[in-house]
Design a protein around this nucleic acid. Structure first.
Lengths: 116, 116
DNA sequence: ACAATCAATCGTAATAATGCGATATAACAA
DNA sequence: TTGTTATATCGCATTATTACGATTGATTGT
C-alpha cells in the first residue's frame, strides 16, 4: 500500500533549512501552558526551585521536572545546585537570542493581501 | 496503581489562565518547520495556492493541506476561492495580534539572575 | 550512621501530532 | 456530458507528547 520509503510520524527536518528547524524547536519548547507559566513564575520570583513550581502550578513533581528539562534543552533557563535543591533562573543571553530569532521571523513587511 | 483521576496524555488547561493557554496554542501552531516555511513562502509571494506549496516544499498534498488547516485554525492565514484553487494569504490583523501577544510575554524585564 | 528532603529518571498509560495514500468534492474546460 | 484540476477529508501507521507513580541518587541535618 505504501510504496514510498519514509518514516511515519516523524517530522521531515531534512527538507527545511537551519533557521526553520531551529525556530520550530524553540517555539515547540515554549508551546505549552505549563512551560509558559514556569517561565512567568521564574521571572516574577527572579529564581525558584522545582518544588516551588510544584506547589504553585499543581502538577506532579515528575511532570514539572520534565517541563524544566525541555526548557533547559533550548537553554532558556539554567539551574544551579544550592544544597539539596536546584535554583532555576532565566538565561538572559538565550532569552534575548530567542527574542531576536522571533523578531527576524515576525518583523517582516506583510503586504496588503491581494486575494482575500 | 493510579488512584487519582486524571486523563493521561492530555494537557491540563484548566489549571492555567486564558493568556497562558492562548499563547501556547498560538506557539504550537507555529512550532513546525513546514508551517514556518509555509508562512515565509506566502509572505515572499504575497499569496499562493496549496499546489505551489506542494511543489516548493516537497511534502504530499494531504500533508500541506493539514498544515494549512492548523494555520487557519489560529487565523494567521485566510483562504479565498479562485476558480478551482484556493488562494492563501496572511491575515495581517491576526499576524499583528500574535506579535503583540508575544511581545507581552517576551518584553519583560528579565532581572540579572541571582543564583546561577 | 540514619533519616529527611529534593530533584532527576524510569516505566507506563493515554492522547496528540506527523505524514501519506486513497477518496470525495467542487469548479472549470472541452 | 465527460474529463481535468485543485483541495479537503478519511483512514492508517508511526512517533511524539503529556502526565504521574515509583524509584534512585545526592545532600543536609541530627
Amino acid at each position: 500500500m505504501y510504496n514510498k520509503i519514509y518514516k511515519m510520524g516523524i517530522t521531515k527536518t531534512d527538507i527545511f533549512n537551519e533557521q526553520q528547524n531551529k525556530l520550530a524547536l524553540q517555539l515547540k519548547a515554549l508551546a505549552h501552558p505549563a512551560r509558559i507559566a514556569i517561565l512567568q513564575y521564574i521571572i516574577k520570583q527572579n529564581a525558584c526551585i522545582c518544588n516551588d513550581l510544584v506547589n504553585e502550578l499543581g502538577l506532579a513533581q515528575a511532570t514539572i521536572s520534565q517541563h524544566l528539562k525541555e526548557l533547559k534543552n533550548i537553554g532558556i533557563i539554567k539551574g544551579n545546585i544550592e544544597g539539596t535543591s536546584i535554583c532555576y533562573c532565566i538565561n538572559e543571553i538565550v532569552w534575548e537570542q530567542i527574542k531576536k530569532d522571533l523578531s527576524l521571523f515576525f518583523d517582516v513587511n506583510v503586504k496588503a493581501n491581494n486575494c482575500c
